[in-house]
């Protein structure tokens, strides 16, 4: 599903390039639920951005669902993000002026579906996440847990190859966080591939596999 080989990424700091990711090799099989665990500044968000095709690597090879991402242009990457990746963000990243339904169906509209078609297709996802009674609410009218459910629904609605979750419980209270993690387990059991980034070991433990990132290097076991 995901195969990364020798990924390097750095940012220019003045004239000097600061390395963030150092020779990353990372593989995720279909149906896996992987947590990338690392402290702040370890490079996990940069890795997440590259995994999500939102940032370019300096060197290395990245294959997603058989597609050579490192050789793909920006226009095609836009399509990859829409069709193969479902993003779940720490702070939900919902569009505040849209209601729940409008937020959820956005990825489908971007695929060229009509409003009607998109609404019909997302009905099951909405039911799965228990959002039936909230579809006309704005994000500002929802609790943190509900917002994250909307964010998950939006990620799931297009049946992506992989779900990428960036600190999905970071903005939630303990109870809501537990619910989200439980939902992730259920989604994984339903066959979804999930890659979650977190700095919290307890959160990471909900995944079936944990990889650690320290100082831009990835370790399958304790470094």
């Amino acid at each position: 599903m995901i195969e990364m080989k020798g990924i390097n990424k750095g940012y220019l700091l003045g004239e000097e390039k600061l390395p963030i990711l150092k020779n990353i090799d990372f593989t995720v099989e279909k149906g896996e639920y992987v947590a990338i665990l690392g402290p702040s500044g370890s490079g996990k968000t940069t890795l997440m951005n590259i995994l999500g095709c939102m940032d370019e690597m300096d060197s290395g090879e990245y294959f997603l669902d058989g597609m050579a991402i490192h050789e793909t242009g920006q226009h095609a990457l836009t399509k990859v993000r829409n069709e193969k990746i479902g993003f779940i963000f720490q702070n939900y990243q919902l569009i505040p002026t849209y209601n729940v339904m409008q937020n959820i169906i956005m990825p489908l509209l971007m695929r060229g579906m009509s409003h009607q078609e998109a609404q019909e297709q997302c009905r099951k996802t909405i039911e799965l996440l228990g959002l039936e009674h909230r579809i006309n609410h704005r994000p500002s009218e929802l609790s943190g847990g509900q917002k994250q459910r909307v964010s998950i629904a939006r990620a799931l609605v297009g049946s992506p190859a992989i779900l990428l979750a960036d600190e999905p419980t970071g903005a939630l209270d303990q109870s809501s966080g537990r619910d989200v993690l439980k939902l992730f387990r259920e989604l994984n059991e339903m066959g979804n591939t999930i890659v979650m980034i977190t700095h919290d070991l307890n959160v990471a433990k909900s995944a079936r596999r944990i990889v650690r990132i320290v100082d831009g290097r990835l370790y399958e076991n304790e470094p």
Binding site: G52, M54, H75, T78, K79, V80, R81, N82, E83, F87, Q93, L94, I95, P96, T97, M106, P107, M110, R111, R154
Partner: peptide, 16 residues
């Protein structure tokens, strides 16, 4: 800008 970022992350094209 954040909204544009969300749209782009979800796969909205430059043209759109």
């Amino acid at each position: 800008t954040n909204e544009i970022g969300i749209l782009k992350a979800l796969g909205c094209s430059r043209r759109d």
